[in-house]
Amino acid sequence: MLSDDIAEALYMWVKCAMLPRFEPFRTTEDMFREIGHRWASPPYIRDVLEDALHVQSGRTRRLLAAAVNAIDREVTSRTLPDPRGDRGAPWWHRRLWTG
C-alpha cells in the first residue's frame, strides 16, 4: 500500500504529463515554481517518486515502477532535452516542456 504522499505525487506526475496539452511550462524553472523541486517545499514530485521506488519492495515496487515508467514515457514525449541543464541532475530536471 502506498502512503498518501506517494499517491499524491503519482497523481501530480500524471497531471504534469498531461499539462502540456493545455498549459505548457516554458522552462524547467517555470515548472519548478508551479510544482516544486527537491530543495523546495513541497519537493519536486518526480523526486518523491524516485525516493519511493528505492524504499518500496516486492509487488508494490513493481506496480509503482510500472506506473511511473508509463508516466515518464508520456513526459519525455512532451518535453525536450534542456541543453543548459545540469548533466549530473536526474533526467526529469533536464527537460523543457513544450506545447
Rank of each mutant, 00 (worst) to 15 (best):
G99C: 08
P20L: 09
I6Y: 10
L2I: 02
S3L: 08
T98N: 02
P81N: 15
A40H: 10
W39I: 12
V48T: 08
T28Y: 08
D4I: 07
R78T: 07
R87P: 08
W39V: 14
H37L: 03
P81V: 15
R73M: 12
H37I: 02
P83H: 08
P90E: 09
H54Q: 13
P24N: 05
A89M: 05
A17L: 11
I35R: 04
V55Q: 09
S41A: 11
T28Q: 12
W92P: 01
E50S: 10
S57A: 12
W92C: 05
A7D: 04
H54N: 12
R61L: 08
M12T: 06
P81F: 15
T79N: 04
P24K: 02
E74P: 06
R21W: 13
V75S: 02
H93I: 03
D51W: 02
R87D: 02
P42E: 00
R62C: 11
G36P: 08
W91E: 11
I6M: 10
L80F: 05
V68N: 09
Y11F: 14
F22I: 11
Y44E: 00
R59I: 14
H37N: 06
W97S: 08
F25M: 13
I35T: 02
W39N: 15
W97Y: 08
F25D: 09
